[in-house]
Simulated scan of single mutants.
Amino acid sequence: MKIAIVDDNKPDLKLLGGFIAGYCRENRVDYELAAAAGGGAFLHGFCAGRYDLVFLDIFMQGMDGMEVAQKIRETDGDVLIVFTTTSSSYAVKSYRVRAFDYLVKPFSYEQFCQTMCLCDKALAKKRHYIEIKEGRVIRKVLLEDIIYTDYANHYIYVHTKTEVVKSYLSFADFSPMLLSFPQFLCCYRNCIVNLDHVLMLKDRDFEMTDGVRVPIKKEWYQEIRQKYADHIFGEMEREERV
């Protein structure tokens, strides 16, 4: 997740940066963080698609946050904007620039986490997909639709909720597309499962939501069982925060 903070109050900027680091660590979110001490400095390096989420203070010297948001929306209609401010008087105006949320200072870490959970879910639906070539066509496959993948005779088979996508691709070239996301795990030679689609761990196999049982390599079993348990507890904690 690529995140930017725009705030000319250094203590507030530092506090929010700490909140972001804490949330991403607890929820195993890969992130990149940029900070700007004013709207002009932020817009100087801004371009559409550069960030997934922008935390934007409204009351700043020079260009205020509402003006910055309007400039953002001139070129980028997708980035999530969360206003952070000491007053709720701009709440109605924030909808004109399609703000995702509005945090009134001082807000607690728990309040922040509630907003981040909502952002996380919104971004997951919008941007998480892989592109692979099937025949002569480039296919976009949503991560949430992938149940598991396997490999045979130089082809990757991506098993989704509705179909199997077949691509002439080595496992070494394909696997980094998925293994950079925490919900995907290599459990056997050339086989990757989506832990979000695991129903249960049974007799050293993963039973998947489509009824298929995917084996776990004997030498990896203890480590994989722990990772699966960590994933389940992580999901439970995230649900409790929302």
Rank of each mutant, 00 (worst) to 15 (best):
A36G: 05
A36F: 10
G38V: 01
G39Q: 07
A41F: 02
F42G: 09
H44N: 10
H44G: 05
H44Q: 10
G45Y: 12
F46D: 00
F46W: 07
F46C: 04
C47A: 10
C47D: 09
C47G: 05
A48V: 03
A48I: 02
G49R: 11
G49A: 12
R50W: 08
Y51H: 13
Y51F: 15
Y51Q: 07
D52Y: 06
V54L: 11
F55D: 05
L56W: 01
L56P: 05
D57I: 06
D57K: 12
F59P: 00
F59N: 08
M60E: 00
M60P: 01
M60F: 01
M60V: 03
Q61E: 08
Q61F: 02
Q61A: 08
G62I: 14
G62A: 14
M63L: 11
D64W: 00
D64V: 00
D64Y: 00
G65S: 15
G65H: 14
G65R: 14
E67D: 14
V68A: 06
V68E: 00
V68F: 01
V68Y: 00
A69F: 02
Q70N: 00
K71Q: 14
K71T: 07
K71H: 14
K71L: 08
K71M: 09
I72R: 03
I72W: 01
I72Q: 01
R73K: 12
E74Q: 06
E74L: 05
E74N: 04
E74V: 00
T75M: 02
T75R: 04
D76C: 01
D76N: 03
G77N: 03
V79C: 12
V79K: 04
V79E: 03
I81C: 14
I81P: 10
I81F: 12
V82Y: 06
V82D: 04
F83C: 07
T84V: 15
T84F: 06
T85D: 03
T85Q: 04
T85P: 03
T86A: 15
T86R: 15
S87P: 10
S87K: 13
S88L: 05
S88Y: 05
S89F: 14
S89G: 13
V92R: 08
V92F: 13
K93Y: 05
K93G: 01
Y95A: 14
Y95F: 15
R96C: 01
R96Q: 06
V97C: 13
V97F: 13
R98G: 11
F100W: 07
F100D: 07
F100C: 10
D101P: 02
Y102N: 08
L103D: 15
L103A: 15
V104P: 13
V104W: 15
K105N: 10
K105F: 07
P106A: 14
P106L: 14
P106Q: 14
F107E: 09
F107N: 10
S108G: 11
S108Q: 13
S108M: 11
S108K: 12
S108H: 13
S108V: 13
S108I: 13
Y109W: 08
Q111F: 02
Q111I: 05
Q111L: 06
F112N: 07
F112Q: 09
T115P: 11
T115C: 15
M116N: 05
C117M: 10
L118I: 06
L118T: 09
L118H: 09
C119Q: 03
D120M: 07
A122W: 14
A122S: 15
